[in-house]
């Protein structure tokens, strides 16, 4: 039976990304083993980050099953809940990167699943770079 979980941040592992395929009926949603979803939440170690032309910040999260291909947030997708993120994030990028995006921190990102040049990625609208050491364990238990 098909289950639709549109507009919900569904907790998943990066291992499950290759199981997601664009829905032929609705290009904004993805079919993942009979479940239709459009958004995903991932939790793991932030292992890389870089800024592209001051337009988008791309980062990679290692959730132990795979390194999730570029997770990105662009200036058109405001970062909502990160305490140190603002809509003018790129004006204050050096400080923001230092506090939120030093590699070696735990990171939780939630956003839209998209495909870009054949790579599934997550355009995050909500990032929390957290210090809660149990965040990933709780994420696993919610899968």
């Amino acid at each position: 039976m098909e289950v639709a979980l549109y507009n919900i941040d569904v907790k998943i592992l990066s291992l499950q990304f290759p199981l997601c395929f664009p829905s032929p009926k609705d290009p904004s949603s993805f079919s993942c083993k009979g479940t239709f979803l459009s958004r995903a939440e991932i939790v793991g170690f932030l292992v890389t980050h870089d800024v592209k032309h001051r337009r988008s910040l791309r980062f990679t999260i290692d959730d132990r099953t795979r390194c999730i291909p570029p997770v990105s947030c662009s200036t058109s997708s405001p970062l909502l809940t990160s305490p140190c993120a603002t809509h003018q994030v790129f004006d204050r990028l050096p400080q923001w990167r230092k506090t939120c995006f030093s590699d070696s921190v735990g990171c939780q990102g939630a956003g839209r699943i998209t495909v870009f040049r054949g790579i599934i990625q997550n355009i995050v609208s909500d990032v929390v770079s957290g210090t809660d050491p149990d965040a990933q364990v709780l994420h696993w238990l919610d899968l």
Binding site: S14, F17, P18, F45, V47, T48, T60, D62, D63, R64, T65, R66, C67, I68, P69, R117, G118, I119, I120
Partner: peptide, 12 residues
């Protein structure tokens, strides 16, 4: 799908 070039750390 192309995979990321960075190896993920298997949890042991």
């Amino acid at each position: 799908m192309a995979a990321s070039s960075i190896s993920s750390g298997a949890l042991v």
